[in-house]
């Protein structure tokens, strides 16, 4: 087993609510480690709509989603949270002393005294293009990411999409592939202009193929792809290929947390409104992922939830300890933790 990372609180999800949980838990002297599937903090705010203004954050008449994330990062800095990005949690195990052992999809192991699930709409995962029967090819000849470029050497490769991922992999895999065809719905691309120009240059030299259209069907046997049917502007075309890489953006799924044995309300985790605790003592859920009567999916509500949850988590970890309620405006001990004591 690889080395174990120990922390007080493991927070799953580094969106705005997960980030603010660091603050509230930090005031109670609990150290946090956050895990997120994305490569940076901010969750949906950073991934889906970084430039959109948000109008219902108290005292901010208007703040961009990325701006909010930046401010939260600044606000929790005194507590020195640790981050692990590009990872999805997989398993959880409750240990004899009431603490938890959590593993990730890359087999890292964390031990925490309590868990806070702040996973929003779920973890971001590649969107599966709606092609009938694609499931039987997934993991064998259809892949949503490139782990090892060598795996694609010598293949007839079909890359689908018009964004940066599609274009970057077109440029990077072209030298390795036996033949590479890019399929996109239209002649305009969302990718950086430089990548688009380089792709068109390769196309002009006939080093790659480009087909406008949408993939409607796959042909092959036992998960091994032989060709893709593409509906183009001039009818259906069959493109021979042995590997396909669709890049259709990301969608959100609850993921392995669904198998943790926690009570669920559809894809949400029911909690009480005193502790925001799930059906498993010591596992809390805050923000968009939880459900209780009257729940509103607002960042504002998530902030409130973490303040109460932090008290409950502290009591779970240190049952006998008296928690003194204090204000950041007047408490020198809180101000010391924030690094602002005079």
């Amino acid at each position: 087993m690889s080395s174990i990372t120990k922390t007080d609180i493991l927070i799953i999800g580094a969106g705005p609510v997960g980030l603010f949980a660091v603050f509230e838990l930090g005031l109670l002297d609990l150290k946090c480690h956050l895990i997120d599937i994305l490569d940076r903090p901010g969750g949906q705010c950073a991934e889906l709509y970084p430039e959109k203004p948000i109008y219902d954050i108290p005292a901010w008449p208007s703040i961009s989603a990325q701006g909010l994330v930046d401010k939260l990062m600044q606000q929790i800095e005194p507590f020195g949270p640790a981050f692990t990005f590009n990872r999805m949690v997989s398993g959880v195990e409750k240990l004899g002393d009431g603490s938890f052992r959590v593993t990730t999809d890359e087999s890292e192991v964390f031990e925490a005294k309590a868990i806070v699930i702040a996973a929003g709409g779920g973890s971001f995962q590649p969107k599966r293009p709606p092609i009938p029967g694609i499931e039987e090819y997934e993991g064998k000849s259809v892949f949503y990411s490139v782990r090892r470029m060598e795996d694609f050497r010598g293949h007839d490769l079909l890359i689908v999409g018009g964004g940066d991922s599609a274009l970057d992999w077109t440029l990077n895999l072209q030298p390795l592939a036996r033949r590479l065809t890019l399929v996109h719905r239209r002649a305009e691309f969302r990718a950086s202009p430089d990548s688009v120009n380089r792709m068109f240059a390769l196309h002009e030299k006939e080093q790659i193929g480009f087909q406008m259209g949408q993939v409607t069907g796959l042909k092959g046997e036992n998960g091994e792809l032989r060709a893709a049917m593409v509906k183009g502007p001039h009818g259906d075309v069959e493109i021979p290929c042995t590997r396909m890489l669709p890049f259709f953006g990301l969608t959100m799924k609850l993921g392995p947390i669904a198998d943790w044995g926690l009570n669920r309300h559809e894809n949400l985790l029911p909690v009480d409104t005193e502790k925001f605790q799930t059906s498993e003592p010591g596992i809390f859920a805050v923000g968009d992922i939880n459900w209780y009567p009257g729940k509103l999916k607002l960042i504002l509500s998530g902030f409130h939830e973490v303040a109460l949850m932090a008290q409950a988590a502290k009591r779970y970890i240190s049952p006998g300890e008296r928690i003194v309620f204090q204000y950041t405006t007047s408490s020198t001990s809180l101000q010391k933790k924030l690094g602002v004591a005079g």
């Binding site: 969107k127 293009p129 709606p130 999409g161 018009g162 964004g163 996109h184 719905r185 239209r186 305009e188 969302r190 949408q214 259709f248 953006g249």
Partner: peptide, 14 residues
């Protein structure tokens, strides 16, 4: 608009 066109790339049977 162009931004919406970009997003439509992710839709099904456009």
């Amino acid at each position: 608009e162009p931004m919406e066109e970009d997003m439509l790339d992710f839709a099904f049977d456009v």
